[in-house]
Computed example of a mutant assay.
Amino acid sequence: MQQQYIDINCDLGEGQTLADCDKDALLMPYLSRCNIACGKHAGNEQTMYQTLLHAKQHNILCGAHPGYADPDNFGRLSLAISIDEVVASVVAQTQHLAHIAASLEQKLVHIKLHGALYNDAEKSPELAGALCKAFTTQLPHLSIIGLADGAMQTAAQKHGLAFLREGFMDRAYLTNRQLAPRTLNGSVYTKSEQCIAQVLALVQQGALETLDGGTVSVQVDTLCLHGDSPIALDVAQALPNELAAVGFVIK
Rank of each mutant, 00 (worst) to 15 (best):
L31I: 09
L31R: 10
L31V: 11
S32R: 11
S32A: 08
R33Q: 15
C34V: 15
N35V: 02
G39R: 01
K40R: 14
K40N: 12
K40W: 10
E45F: 13
Q46D: 11
M48N: 02
M48R: 01
T51Q: 01
L52K: 03
L53H: 14
A55N: 03
K56A: 13
K56L: 10
C62M: 04
G63E: 07
P66N: 09
G67H: 01
D70S: 10
D70T: 00
D72Q: 15
G75D: 04
S78F: 10
S78Q: 13
L79Y: 04
A80E: 15
A80Y: 00
D84F: 03
D84Y: 02
V87N: 10
A88S: 14
S89K: 02
V90S: 02
T94R: 00
T94D: 00
H96S: 12
L97E: 07
L97T: 10
A98C: 06
A98M: 09
A98L: 04
H99S: 14
A101W: 01
A101Y: 00
A102N: 13
A102T: 13
L104M: 10
L104G: 12
L104I: 12
E105N: 15
E105F: 09
E105P: 06
Q106F: 00
K107R: 14
L108G: 00
V109S: 13
V109N: 10
K112F: 06
K112L: 06
L113T: 06
G115R: 00
G115H: 06
A116S: 11
A116F: 07
L117A: 04
D120P: 00
E122A: 04
K123R: 15
